[in-house]
Design a protein around this nucleic acid. Structure first.
Lengths: 192, 192
DNA sequence: TGCTTTTTGTACCTTTTAGTATATTATACT
DNA sequence: AGTATAATATACTAAAAGGTACAAAAAGCA
């Protein structure tokens, strides 16, 4: 029965994600969203619920996409050191190439919403924990292959890398001298 | 000549700072501010300019206060390792003692405003650079005293500590298991 | 073809937003 | 004491916010 959606749900959600990612939850207005999504206001409410629900949907999409991207990059290099180095250096390169990067939607949400909304506290925490597991598995692979010392504390090291990742991503927003970030990356990698 | 202010500028600025610190720039309304400051709306505009100007004033106050606090803590212990450890552990303790901590106003601003407003990009960048200098001076003191190796790269290490500080402060907003943060602190301190 | 059902577009609602006009009050100086 | 001056309080404005009512439109099925 009946009339079907005229828009591609996947595409409009991606447009909404981009708006929330760039502006944050509060600063993104419904008008910003409907413009970017190219749908009418009632269609938004009908298809995705209110602003908070739409935000949650886009954030969940983001965390899945983000985690998959990191996993792929970490698995793409047989050398664990090189894989992790490439990931960190890629982040930095992106930030200093032309227009700069957009940072991390999940980190933005941790700062803006997690302290005031338990739902987002949980979503963001679980994402960071998942990233830590990805790093840990990568480090354990390096231990098995003999690339890293047998006594390496994979879990603690992985958690420390997640902390560095967050710190770098946030600091990049203030556009510091590249050497600042390069040094920090080098020190972090020296732990491996 | 004439009628004098009925309010203590220092106190009301502190109240405003607290509002912006807790809620962020967008989510803090003028009503929130005037309530917390216990002044009337036109008094706010007359004394402090518009919302953005007031925000900037409170942020500058914050960075001064924050830097002075860190400096004092780092100088308060003759052992450099112990001073830095105490600082990081104090942060974590605060976050897990009862109601949790409020994070860092400057970091919040880096995430919310720096990407969209050059003025805040500069203020937040300079604050982080200043913190890095404070850590660097502390590390150099440790090198001079013989507590740290002569070959220690004080600058790079200090910058890495600032990155860790940011990462920990942000991650704490998602209330992760304490062991996560404890491990990351331990790894960071192992670099000293 | 016509009926049912869901999406769409227009227009609207209420509340809240940042910011201000104005009149009143209180003080310091003449 | 009276006057000039600045801060206060009340009340307001215009714009924008999030959200919705309702009628028109479109598609599957009888």
């Amino acid at each position: 029965m009946v009339r079907l959606r005229e828009f591609d749900e996947e595409k409009v959600l991606q447009a909404a994600m981009r708006v929330f990612w760039e502006k944050g939850y509060e600063a993104a207005s419904i008008n910003d969203l409907t413009s970017a999504m190219a749908i009418q206001r009632p269609s938004l409410y009908l298809a995705f619920g209110d602003k908070k629900q739409l935000f949650e949907t886009t954030l969940r999409k983001y965390t899945q996409w983000h985690a998959a991207g990191i996993r792929k990059k970490l698995e793409s290099n047989s050398s664990v050191r090189e894989a992790i180095r490439a990931y960190f250096e890629g982040l930095v390169d992106e930030a200093y190439d032309g227009e700069g990067s957009m940072g991390c939607f999940c980190i933005n949400t941790m700062v803006e919403l997690s302290p005031h909304d338990e739902k987002f506290e949980i979503i963001t925490r679980e994402h960071q924990m998942y990233l830590a597991v990805l790093f840990q598995e990568t480090i354990e692979r390096g231990i098995r292959s003999g690339e890293l010392h047998q006594e390496t504390n994979a879990k603690a090291l992985a958690q420390s890398l997640v902390i560095s990742l967050i710190g770098i991503t946030v600091l990049l927003k203030s556009r510091p001298d590249r050497s600042f970030v390069d040094n920090a990356v080098e020190v972090s990698l020296s732990l491996l």
